[in-house]
């Protein structure tokens, strides 16, 4: 209801979303050299963010963000705390309703959808949270099964086989019957990844997946993500502070500050020759 109200009286006027073909053509031109991911002329971006604005009460946390993500691309979003990177991610699966602007997934506008349609769209956008958010009353296996059985209506057997396969893929086959509380943080996060992957989403969003972990547990989770990026061909948008991961795995690094995309480009470009002073300062302070 509140979302509707905001739409009725948008604080910010933005132009309508571009037609799909035109947008694809512009994106093709614009993204040349910004990513090491290979995309072809005529291909459409899987996620298109146009003029995205988001305000909490009076505070504008996203200011006219524009971003394209190509199928199979791994985009890492960097930036200081409060730069709006998590909010942008949460807008992509509508955990936050944008205040203005457009988000298109496979050329389908998602910002004006009803609740039922939003639920349908979310099946195709997986999310891994900073705090894991596993269901504590279910075992690891059941956590991975529940979305498949309830949302995708897969049979129990099918869902169980898929769950065991995904748990094995994150190295937790022998923890299938453990409750989240009996797993370490790193193991919980890997279960959460398995849960998201088991839905076979088109896009997988990672919201600071290692920030809540003890340093020695970070590597296991990053290994799993690296494996996904390199071997599954999954489209991934990762908000993180892990510079090593960004440099090694990302096709494109996006640097955000104060709700604005300040700089984006191939990791080696952004890390080694940042154009923007703030980017340089941030990366310098992080190193």
């Amino acid at each position: 209801m509140s979302a509707k109200l905001r739409h009725r009286a948008p604080a910010i006027e933005v132009p309508p979303a571009l037609p799909a073909d035109e947008a694809a053509r512009i994106a093709y031109e614009a993204d040349q050299g910004l990513t090491s991911h290979a995309f072809t002329p005529g291909e459409h971006p899987i996620v298109r963010i146009e003029h995205l604005n988001k305000s909490f009460d009076e505070t504008l946390v996203l200011k006219d963000v524009n971003l394209n993500v190509w199928p199979g691309e791994v985009v890492v979003v960097l930036g200081p705390s409060g730069s709006g990177k998590s909010t942008m991610l949460r807008c992509i699966n509508l955990l936050e309703r944008p205040s203005a602007g457009h988000i298109l997934i496979e050329d389908e506008e998602i910002t004006n959808k009803s609740t039922a349609e939003v639920n349908r769209l979310r099946r195709d956008v997986g999310m891994v949270f900073q705090q894991f958010n596993l269901f504590p009353h279910l075992t690891a296996k059941e956590n991975v099964m529940i979305g498949q059985t309830k949302v995708l209506r897969r049979s129990r057997e099918e869902a169980e086989a898929e769950a065991l396969k995904q748990l094995a893929a994150v190295g937790l086959a022998d923890r299938a019957d453990f409750k989240p509380a009996q797993l370490s943080g790193g193991q919980q996060q890997r279960v959460a990844i398995a849960r998201a992957v088991a839905m076979h989403p088109n896009v997988l969003l990672f919201d600071e997946p290692t920030s809540a972990l003890d340093p020695e547990l970070v590597r296991g989770v990053l290994d799993v993500m690296r494996d996904l990026a390199e071997n599954s061909g999954m489209t991934m948008i990762v908000v993180t502070h892990e510079m090593g991961f960004a440099r090694d795995v990302a096709d494109r690094v996006v640097f955000m500050e104060e709700g604005v995309v300040v700089e984006q480009g191939r990791p080696e470009k952004v890390f080694d020759h940042p154009e923007n002073a703030r980017t340089a300062e941030f990366l310098g302070s992080i190193k």
Partner: peptide
């Protein structure tokens, strides 16, 4: 976070 996790899987209310 529990609601968000369920929503992100596409579950309805």
């Amino acid at each position: 976070g529990q609601y968000e996790a369920a929503s992100s899987l596409g579950m309805n209310y």
